[in-house]
Design a protein around this nucleic acid. Structure first.
Length: 265
DNA sequence: ACATTGACCTGAGAGC
DNA sequence: TGCTCTCAGGTCAATG
């Protein structure tokens, strides 16, 4: 799940469940997922504190602690959050458990352990150290910024869109959706795109695909009928014309596209 | 310097 | 049923 829209939903979830409650205790069953910190340090930093806000940059979620400091969560391919009182109602693969004074627990789950749990003192510094590009839903992300970023890449457009150092938050699924909506095939070289193509991709990212996905709570079954995501599997057909979707491999990742509605190679 | 590949994890589903 | 193989919404180090 966890690309930008999914993480935005996790952020909203954390915001609506877990702010302003004292953290009583912390358990770290997924110690091997910690990055740059230890279970004992994490417990020491979190215990007795509370989350004041929840922020997001690209695919990263940040829980802002009172006074200062941030809990950093990355969800890999299989991460998600749950908030519960009854342990039995929660699914497994819990890697981090934050116990609040109201008896509820915020749990971070991650089946494949490809995510990360970390601490950060300063958000901007964290983003800079990770080398993350701008968040496409940030206010400073304009067409000129986007075009300049893109023009520096020699890769296939799908790979460029997924490069977190250029642009933070787009992954395998949503890059397919953006290119489907823009009518451009995923294997087209980024440098071969026209200004019109770039503008079209920019608009799809910022005004259509990402906001629409967030509106749909990143739930494929709630996406508009014109989206390719629900059809993105073997045997899937284009939602616009019924043509069988084509499947290729680009930059080691599986890409789906409609040969009728997407131009290029 | 940049782009692509393989490794890291675990589980689900297909095919035999 | 049970085994093996492939694949999965991400990222990083190693390789070309």
């Amino acid at each position: 799940m966890p690309e930008l829209p999914d993480v935005e939903i996790f952020r909203q979830y954390m915001e609506s469940t877990s702010l302003q409650q004292e953290i009583r205790n912390v358990e770290v069953p997924g110690k091997d997922m910690l990055e740059g910190t230890s279970a004992s340090r994490l417990k020491k930093v979190l215990r007795g504190r509370l989350f004041q806000n929840a922020r997001r940059h690209g695919k990263y979620l940040f829980g802002g602690l009172d006074e200062e400091g941030w809990l950093v969560l990355h969800f890999g391919m299989t991460g998600f959050l749950s908030y519960f009182r009854d342990e039995k109602q929660s699914t497994s693969h819990k890697r981090l458990l934050i116990r609040f004074s109201n008896g509820y627990t915020l749990a971070y789950h991650c089946l494949r352990k490809l995510g990360k749990i970390a601490l950060a003192d300063d958000l901007n510094r964290f983003i800079e150290e990770k080398g993350l590009g701008p968040d496409p839903l940030g206010s400073s992300f304009d067409l000129e910024t986007f075009s300049n970023t893109m023009s520096a890449s020699r890769a296939a457009v799908k790979s460029t869109l997924m490069n977190q150092k250029l642009l933070a938050g787009i992954g395998n699924i949503y890059s397919d959706e953006i290119l489907f909506q823009a009518g451009i095939r995923p294997g087209v070289k980024t440098r071969d795109l026209s200004d019109k193509d770039l503008e079209s991709i920019y608009i799809e990212i910022t005004q259509n695909v990402l906001p629409t996905a967030i509106e749909a709570r990143a739930d494929p079954s709630r996406l508009p009928a014109s989206f390719i995501i629900p059809h993105r599997h073997g045997g899937g057909a284009c939602p616009l014309c019924g043509t069988a979707l084509r499947k290729t491999r680009i930059g080691g990742r599986t890409a789906y596209f409609c040969p009728q509605h997407q131009h290029g190679c």
